[in-house]
Simulated assay, not measured.
Amino acid sequence: MKTVVNKNLTPEQQEELLSYLKIRFEKNMNRHKGLDWSKVQAKLETHPEKLWSLYEMERTDGEPDVVGYDEKAGDYIFCDCSRESPKGRRSVCYDREAQESRKEHKPENNAMDMAAAMGIELLTEEQYRDLQKLGIFDMKTSSWILTPADIRGLGGALFADFRYGHVFVYHNGAQSYYAARAFRGSLRV
């Protein structure tokens, strides 16, 4: 998938994206039991700005899929479901402050700015743990997760992965970045 600069997908790009999403939805029904693709698609088609965000998730190898439905808000919840952290979002530190604090070897980007630019949010620890109930993710990689302000205020940031049959949440300096660490995002439609 190509980078889309103006946040408007062509009809062909929309069709291609919806096709990918439908195939993934039907292939992974355990992630969204009881939900109907035609209703998801109808909601997506009325929110083109959300389609653009999903396109960006797909373009950066996040493999977005529906992981829930919020009945109160009437929102479908999409999340990156790639087996490992999205390849197109790796080698980033946590946020702009961390990125700017590096004296040398600065990463090209940071997780918080990338997520905002894509119109998505980093997963919370709870969302990350819930995702792991739907499959096994990040067995060889790790993903930045939304960090509480008190931890971030002290210079740290949280990331998580799945090892030895368990979800582990760790801390690191927010300015750190690794080739095997990216971030997973969520989007409400």
Results as ranks from 00 to 15, higher is better:
175 Q>A: 13
38 S>M: 07
130 D>I: 10
91 S>P: 01
94 Y>V: 10
178 Y>S: 06
110 N>R: 12
27 K>L: 12
120 I>P: 05
45 E>T: 05
139 M>G: 00
96 R>G: 09
88 G>R: 00
163 R>E: 15
50 K>C: 08
154 L>F: 00
52 W>R: 11
133 K>E: 13
55 Y>D: 08
107 P>Q: 00
46 T>V: 01
1 M>I: 10
45 E>F: 02
163 R>F: 06
173 G>Q: 05
38 S>A: 05
178 Y>A: 09
134 L>H: 12
96 R>A: 14
7 K>I: 08
188 R>W: 06
111 A>T: 06
64 P>N: 11
38 S>C: 00
47 H>L: 12
5 V>E: 13
106 K>A: 14
63 E>H: 14
179 A>P: 00
62 G>Q: 07
22 K>I: 01
63 E>F: 15
8 N>C: 09
93 C>L: 04
131 L>S: 09
26 E>V: 00
131 L>Q: 13
6 N>Y: 00
63 E>Q: 15
24 R>C: 14
19 S>W: 03
111 A>D: 10
20 Y>D: 12
127 Q>H: 05
187 L>M: 01
48 P>A: 12
98 A>G: 03
157 A>R: 04
48 P>D: 13
80 D>Y: 03
25 F>T: 11
184 R>A: 02
169 V>K: 06
148 P>Y: 02
79 C>P: 13
74 G>C: 14
26 E>Q: 10
173 G>Y: 08
149 A>F: 08
49 E>N: 11
183 F>V: 01
5 V>H: 13
14 Q>K: 13
28 N>W: 12
169 V>F: 07
163 R>C: 09
27 K>D: 12
71 E>A: 14
98 A>K: 05
12 E>M: 10
61 D>G: 04
87 K>F: 02
186 S>P: 01
106 K>M: 11
2 K>V: 01
172 N>M: 11
164 Y>D: 15
170 Y>K: 13
180 A>W: 07
56 E>H: 02
149 A>V: 14
131 L>F: 03
136 I>Q: 12
129 R>C: 09
178 Y>D: 11
156 G>Q: 08
171 H>V: 09
22 K>Y: 01
31 R>Y: 05
55 Y>T: 08
51 L>R: 15
61 D>N: 14
116 A>H: 08
96 R>D: 15
63 E>P: 08
153 G>K: 02
148 P>G: 00
140 K>P: 01
148 P>L: 01
22 K>F: 04
130 D>E: 14
59 R>I: 13
159 F>S: 09
123 L>E: 09
93 C>W: 00
33 K>R: 11
68 G>T: 07
110 N>D: 15
4 V>S: 12
82 S>P: 04
171 H>L: 11
5 V>Q: 15
122 L>S: 07
147 T>V: 01
129 R>I: 12
155 G>K: 10
32 H>K: 09
4 V>E: 08
28 N>Q: 12
179 A>T: 00
88 G>L: 04
133 K>H: 05
22 K>N: 08
141 T>Q: 04
180 A>S: 14
19 S>C: 02
43 K>H: 03
54 L>H: 06
33 K>H: 04
163 R>I: 12
158 L>K: 08
158 L>H: 01
2 K>Y: 05
127 Q>G: 07
171 H>Y: 10
46 T>L: 09
77 I>D: 07
8 N>W: 02
178 Y>F: 10
